[in-house]
Design a protein around this nucleic acid. Structure first.
Lengths: 342, 342
DNA sequence: TAACAAATCCGAAACGTTTCGGATTGTGAT
DNA sequence: ATCACAATCCGAAACGTTTCGGATTTGTTA
């Protein structure tokens, strides 16, 4: 491998100046810079990350640590996350790597190892929980990280997130404004921070309309088609106080809900209004639902670019105010909502 | 982070001796070694990989590069591979990381980048193909790697593999010995090296029994249930020269075959004998098939330990003869095979 | 006791990079 | 001619580790 010294010799300059030229420092003339870059290219020079890390403290490698779990593998989510992040870190000349922890292995020591030996500059945290130990740990150790989502009410960490609270407020509010008073919420697994945010949005809308929330019609589970299906069957079981509308955490759930409603002989939106949040996972076309599904639309895949940028900036020491990013979302009203039957 | 110098000071020794003590070198007394280790532990010392890499040329990090692909994510295979390798490299105090290349991105430049900046010591190659460019490239650059499988007839690279050729020879031979003469083979995707090996074993057995191979009844495809199902339907389509036995590349295929046969009103093993190779993926219980499926048994999960060991040894410069490992397999004859109907 | 080998230790150099402080030019104003 | 100043360059030190060659101590044998 060609080293800086090789480039310096061939360019007839000092190692110092070559380094500065390649890193776009100020005190190197344009002519020299171009010359050095040309020479470096011709030699196929690549900076040695270890050497760089040793002196500058940065290696340009960042990582994602995931616990081994059958869930992660099964849906396409994991690959989507990894590929998306990989792409956008590459674009920033950073290496993105994944470390899979063993099942049941405590996760903090894994981070400690990865940090201790100085291989990685920072981390991306996904699936944050309400009191996320990883975030606390990394904050404590002063290691840069970015969270996909927010932890707590007033987060003091870098993040990229969508307005889950607002989204579910608006979803609920729309149904309320149509006249619905009994609105079911099929939410994700308890403990995840976005699940809490969504619930808060839902409850705030209900409270605003003076409607009492009923715990019997908000459910938490992994967001699958099966969840939507069995929940719906259960919600409409005879003798129960069935809802007139259902809000789904994602489109997969909505698919299950549609199936169950059809099986139960109930129509959308005649008997039941259905809405969902659409993260564009699992290529379910919400417009192709029958009737077309009304959704809030915020593709998950729009997260990776800001996340990568955020971590990159966090590592270079940008102020927190520049590291708290919010993604946009859109309402797409279609045909799955209507006023409730009297 | 505590450095070697810190440990040396606290232990009252030179940096040199501390390094030697921690790395189990010869010329350090047992008493010193223990003392040093105790001090290191008390300080939470972790060697800096970058510094180590710089001088010794080894960082203790190895990697797997996978192209982004929807396939990989969907079946549990990818997670199984990653988790297995991760586990066994950890046990060897090595860090195992995954790099996902972008879809359609040429793979060699990715390796070049990863090697050039000196982050990784070696690679694990999975899904080798007949003329694998990655292996050629890494050999050329003299970068250690280990292949899960073999490339070519007389491989000159480190590998761990099972005897695919023998396994499919024996599978075929068994059916031949029962009297079958028309044996279908549902193989994996063409180009993969193990697929070629399996075909060779099958053909050698047929040739040994003086049976002409018929290309019409050997099929190549991704090894899914659907493949088994549609192939079977096709093989037994009216007017065709149907086989009396089917060999499946894995159990998933066999499941599809069973389904199709049942739908077609054909019995196992009365009308058709079925065998498969079982890699224990996708927790399909072969003994729970009805009738219980006869298989060759070689759990894929037994591969990760030897693969990790092999790469570790390759990096430390072990001779090739110690780096070519073969896994064992077992025959499990159950109730899915019988002599063909006259 | 002298000589020698083995066991145990250490200083210094090296790996490839960044960066601090200073050195060397060239330019224009005095 | 002198000075100030910017623009452009360079030497040397530093990062944390391993390793080479040699130094010191200890034990053994003549």
């Amino acid at each position: 491998m060609a080293t800086l010294k090789d480039v310096a010799r061939k360019a007839g300059l000092s190692v110092t100046q070559v380094s500065r030229a390649l890193n776009n420092h100020s005190d190197v003339s344009a002519r020299t810079r171009e010359h050095v870059q040309a020479v470096a290219r011709s030699l196929g020079y690549q900076p040695n990350l270890s050497a760089r890390k040793l002196v500058s403290g940065r290696s340009g490698m960042v990582g994602l640590v995931v616990p081994r779990s059958p869930d992660l593998a099964s849906d396409g989510l994991f690959m989507e996350v990894v590929a998306g992040l990989s792409t956008h870190f590459s674009a920033r000349e950073m290496q993105f790597v994944v470390h899979v922890a063993q099942e049941g292995e405590p996760i903090l020591p894994v981070y400690r190892r990865l940090i201790g030996n100085g291989a990685l500059d920072g981390f991306v945290l996904i699936d944050p929980e309400d009191n996320d130990e990883r975030a606390a740990f990394l904050t404590e150790l002063d290691v840069p990280f970015v969270v996909h989502g927010r932890i707590g009410e007033n987060p003091v960490h870098p993040y990229f997130d969508i307005e889950n609270e607002s989204i579910f407020f608006e979803l609920t509010d729309h149904l309320l404004s149509l006249g619905h008073r009994r609105i079911a919420l099929l939410n994700g697994v308890e403990g995840r921070s976005y699940v809490g945010a969504r619930l808060r949005g839902y409850l705030r809308a209900l409270a605003g309309a003076g409607v009492d929330a009923d715990k019997a019609i908000t459910r938490n589970c992994k967001m699958t088609e099966a969840f939507g299906l069995v929940s719906t069957v259960d919600l409409f079981s005879p003798g129960g106080d069935a809802p007139t509308a259902i809000i789904c955490g994602n489109v997969r759930i909505a698919k299950g809900v549609y199936q169950a409603l059809q099986a139960l002989g109930l129509t959308v939106p005649g008997d039941v209004s259905v809405m969902a949040h659409d993260d564009h996972l699992g290529n379910l076309q919400t417009a192709a639902f029958y009737p077309a599904l009304s959704v809030t639309d915020a593709p998950l895949r729009d997260s990776w670019e800001p996340l990568a940028g955020c971590l990159a900036d966090a590592i270079t020491g940008a102020p927190l105010s520049k590291l708290q990013l919010i993604g946009s979302h859109q309402f797409r009203f279609r045909r799955s909502t209507a006023a409730p039957q009297s």
